[in-house]
Structures are given as structure tokens and as C-alpha cells.
């Protein structure tokens, strides 16, 4: 066997996941997104090892108000003398945590609804999807605000509000994916073997329908991070003194004429995180698209 042939067979043996990764990493922008997001994730997870939450991000130091970025405080200090760098780092934790958990929950609930609708069809499908349509008719931001109006502000309530607002989207995507897979022969075969419905959905349908769902989930984490920031900015999201990027900007708004770094820095972090997720999502879509396979 020549070297070339050996390479060829080795390539063929690659798992599905490996070949997706192979295509993904060819996309430099997507790889850049992945690296940026990995850094943000690292910061969010290990925030406690980088700065001290109580001392740097929460307690107020009136003698140190509005200090411009310097060696001691690389992002400066805010109107309460708190270190902006520390607050930005813990802000990453809030945004990424709420963004990822919201989408995970919405995906789980949406998957159950969408899978039931798509798999059983008929009456169940009609009922579930009409209910989802009604939810979809309410703009996401408005629905989230209405739920916040009922439950009140705070992290858990924001999480619930955003999750409810995202469920219908995932229900629809999961349903659509399942409808395309459902009619294929291997499902028929599994049915003929007497496999239970839940096993067919979990083991045969979902793995084959998951591509577009993962892409959508990645992109929706990005939009959710934007919505959290926006809700917090208008004062209906995460409440001060918890460091959240949007509410940090709301705090600084009245002072932005003199201390523009207080507005610019948190915004840059949101934009970079969201951009990283968008690039990853686009890259994943291209990597998963079977038309690009050779």
C-alpha cells in the first residue's frame, strides 16, 4: 500500500464528528470565533481565580471613583470606585451562564414539544404547533418583558422569561428536522423491529436531525446574550450591584460624556462574545452541510 492510499483509508475511517471538525477548522473565521468564545468561557469559569468578587467587583471605594484606565485598573473604575476589569470578568460569567442555560432549557423543552408534534403528527401536531404559533406571534423581547412584569426581576426570573420566549423556536426547528428524518427507511426498519417510540426518537431520529438544531442553538445563545444585556440596560434584567454588562452601561449612561470608557468597554465585550458565537454558528452550519462534503 502506498503512502497516499494509506492516507485515503485513514481518512475514510474518520468518524462523522472528526470529519465535521476537519471541515470546521478549515474555516478560519469560525476557528477565530471558537478561540474567542473559549477565552470568554475560561474567564467566566475561572473568574474567582482572577479577581476577588466581593473586594473588587462589589464593595465600593469612594476615593477611587471614575479613575481612567491605568496600570493599576486596566479598565479604570466606575462611579462607585469598583474595578471595571473585575466587573467585566464577572459579567462574562453572568452573560454566558444565563445565555447557555437558557438555550439548554429551551432546547430541552422545545425538543420534547417539537419531537412529539413531528413524530405523532395529526391532532397532537396541530394543537401543539398552533399554541407555539401564538407564542411566536409575540415578539421575544415583549414576551420576556411581560413575564418579568409578572415574576419580577432577578437572575432566575430572567432565565425563565428568556427560556419561555425561546421554546417555540426550538419546537419548530426540532419538528421540522424530525419530519425530514421520519420518512426515511431506517426508521421504518426500527419500527419493524418493535423498537419503542421513545427509543426511536432518542436513538434514531435525534442523532440524525441534530445538525440544524445545534447551529440554531449556537446562534440563539448569541441573541440571548444580547437580550439579557438589553433587559438589564432598561432595568428589567439582572439588578445592580451584580456586575452585568448591560446594567453596567445603564449605570454609566449619565456619566458617559466624561467617562466614555465605562460605556465602550462593556459593549466591546458583549460584541466580541456575540460575534464569536455568530462565527461559530455560521462555521458549524457550513461544516454540517452535506452539500459541501466531497
Amino acid at each position: 500500500m502506498t503512502e497516499q492510499q494509506r492516507k485515503k483509508t485513514a481518512y475514510k475511517k474518520k468518524s462523522q464528528l472528526m470529519s465535521i471538525w476537519h471541515r470546521f477548522k478549515k474555516n478560519k473565521l469560525a476557528l477565530f470565533g471558537l478561540v474567542v468564545f473559549a477565552i470568554m468561557l475560561f474567564i467566566a469559569i475561572f473568574a474567582d481565580f482572577i479577581v476577588d468578587y466581593e473586594r473588587d467587583a462589589i464593595s465600593q471605594h469612594m476615593t477611587k471613583r471614575f479613575m481612567s484606565p491605568s496600570a493599576e485598573h486596566i479598565f479604570g473604575t466606575d462611579g462607585f470606585g469598583r474595578d471595571m476589569f473585575a466587573r467585566i470578568i464577572f459579567g462574562a460569567r453572568i452573560s454566558i451562564f444565563v445565555g447557555v442555560v437558557t438555550i439548554a432549557l429551551a432546547l430541552a423543552v422545545g425538543a420534547v414539544i417539537g419531537a412529539s408534534a413531528g413524530y405523532y403528527g395529526g391532532y397532537i401536531d396541530e394543537t401543539l404547533m398552533r399554541i407555539m404559533d401564538v407564542f411566536l406571534a409575540i415578539p421575544q423581547m415583549i414576551l420576556a418583558i411581560a413575564i418579568v412584569a409578572a415574576l419580577g426581576t432577578g437572575m432566575v426570573n430572567i432565565l425563565i422569561a428568556l427560556t419561555v420566549a425561546q421554546v417555540p423556536k426550538f419546537a419548530r426547528i426540532v419538528r421540522a428536522s424530525i419530519l425530514t428524518v421520519k420518512t426515511q427507511d431506517f426508521i421504518e426498519a426500527a419500527k419493524a423491529c418493535g423498537t419503542s417510540d421513545s427509543r426511536i426518537i432518542a436513538r434514531h431520529i435525534i442523532p440524525n436531525a441534530i445538525g440544524p438544531i445545534v447551529v440554531q442553538a449556537t446562534l440563539n445563545v448569541a441573541t440571548t446574550i444580547l437580550v439579557i444585556a438589553a433587559l438589564s440596560f432598561v432595568g428589567l434584567g439582572i439588578q445592580p450591584p451584580t456586575p452585568e454588562w448591560g446594567s453596567m452601561m445603564a449605570d454609566a449612561k449619565s456619566q458617559m460624556r466624561y467617562h466614555e470608557y465605562l460605556i465602550i468597554i462593556p459593549g466591546l465585550f458583549i460584541a466580541f462574545t456575540v460575534m464569536a458565537l455568530n462565527l461559530m454558528g455560521d462555521g458549524l452550519r457550513d461544516a454540517l452541510d452535506p452539500r459541501l462534503k466531497n
Partner: peptide, 22 residues
């Protein structure tokens, strides 16, 4: 297009105020 989708809208608004008003 990538930059515009990634920016929080309210941040863009604040930046515009900063530049064109202040």
C-alpha cells in the same frame, strides 16, 4: 453585517450619542 449583528443595539445608540451629540 457581522459587526452590526453582533453589537447590542442600545450600545450602538449610546456610541452614536457619544459621537454625534456629545
Amino acid at each position: 453585517a457581522l459587526i452590526l449583528t453582533s453589537m447590542p443595539a442600545f450600545w450602538l445608540g449610546l456610541l452614536l450619542i457619544l459621537l454625534f451629540s456629545l
